[in-house]
Design a protein around this nucleic acid. Structure first.
Length: 244
DNA sequence: AACTCGGGCAACCGCGAGGTC
DNA sequence: CGACCTCGCGGTTGCCCGAGT
C-alpha cells in the first residue's frame, strides 16, 4: 500500500499539476524571501506541497530566466555535441544552455532526439559526424571517478593538446564547430581533468595507463571533415529532428 | 462523434553527495 | 565518525492533447 506523503503539519500533500494559485504563492514567497530552505518553504508559503515539489516547479517552470518555446537549431546542435561527450548528464548540458532546464533537455532527448539518433547511428553510422571518446552514463561516470579499484577498461579518452603539441596538426574545421567549439572544448577539458585524476591515481599505484594510443580532438574533427560536403552538421541535426 | 493510440511534457521517485551536528 | 538533513540529479511515470481511424 502506498504511503500518503504528508507535510510538516501532518496534512496530506497535494500532488500532480500545479494550479495558477499555487504558482502565484510560490513566486510571491520567493520574491519576498528568496530561497533559503526548500523543506520549510511550502509551509511558510501556505502550500500543501513537498519542498521537493516546490523546488522542481520553481527550477523547471517558474524561474524568471527560463526560456520557453522551441529549441533552436543551434541549441539542438549543442545538445547533441555535449551528449556525445557527457552522456546523460543533463544538468551539465543545461548549464551550457542559458534558460533551458535539465528536465527540458532530457525530455527533448528522450522524446525526439534519441530515437532518431539511434536510427541514424544504425543507418548512417559512417556518415554521422561523431566525436569519438567518452559517451558515458552518469552512473558509470561517477562510478569510474569514485572507484578506487577500477577493474573495467575506461573508454578511449579524448586528449586535449596544448598549443605546442598541435603544431603541424590540421586546423579545426570552422564549419563544424563554429561558435560552440569553445564550449565543447571546455567540457572536454573538464572531463579530461577528472579522467586524468583517475589515471594519475592508477599510475601512482604503479598501474599502466588505461587507454592505448591517445588522440586529439583535432584528429577527430579531421575525420569529420573527411566527410566533406556530403554530411554537414546542419543536415545531421535536421535528420535527427525531422527524420529527413 | 466516439474511440484509440502515441507523443510530448510536467511531475514524482529514489538515490547519492555534501553539509552540519 | 556516524547519523541526520537538505539539495540536486537522472530515470521513470502518468496525464493531456492531437492525430488517426
Amino acid at each position: 500500500m502506498r504511503k500518503i506523503a504528508r507535510n510538516s503539519q501532518n496534512l496530506p500533500l497535494k500532488r500532480g499539476t500545479w494550479s495558477p494559485e499555487e504558482d502565484q504563492k510560490l513566486i510571491a514567497y520567493i520574491n519576498r524571501h528568496g530561497i533559503r530552505n526548500w523543506i520549510e518553504m511550502p509551509k511558510a508559503a501556505g502550500l500543501l506541497r513537498s519542498g521537493k515539489s516546490c523546488r522542481l516547479r520553481w527550477m523547471n517552470y517558474l524561474r524568471p530566466d527560463i526560456k520557453r518555446g522551441n529549441f533552436s537549431m543551434e541549441e539542438v546542435e549543442t545538445i547533441l555535441k555535449l551528449h556525445e561527450i557527457l552522456g546523460n548528464r543533463w544538468s551539465a548540458i543545461a548549464a551550457k544552455l542559458p534558460g533551458r532546464t535539465d528536465n527540458e533537455i532530457k525530455n527533448l532527448w528522450n522524446t525526439r532526439l534519441k530515437k532518431n539518433y539511434v536510427k541514424n547511428n544504425i543507418n548512417t553510422a559512417a556518415q554521422a559526424p561523431k566525436l569519438q571518446g567518452t559517451q558515458t552514463s552518469t552512473a558509470e561516470f561517477k562510478k569510474r571517478k569514485l572507484s578506487e579499484n577500477i577493474d573495467v577498461p575506461l573508454p578511449t579518452a579524448p586528449k586535449i593538446l596544448k598549443p605546442e603539441d598541435s603544431e603541424g596538426s590540421p586546423k579545426l574545421p570552422i564549419s563544424y564547430f563554429s561558435s560552440s567549439f569553445n564550449l565543447v572544448n571546455d567540457l572536454i577539458i573538464n572531463e579530461n581533468q577528472i579522467i586524468e585524476e583517475n589515471v594519475g591515481l592508477l599510475e601512482s599505484n604503479g598501474e599502466d595507463c588505461l587507454w592505448g594510443p591517445q588522440f586529439s580532438t583535432e584528429g577527430q574533427t579531421c575525420r569529420v571533415e573527411d566527410y566533406g560536403d556530403t554530411c554537414t552538421v546542419e543536415m545531421w541535426v535536421q535528420e535527427l529532428l525531422h527524420g529527413v
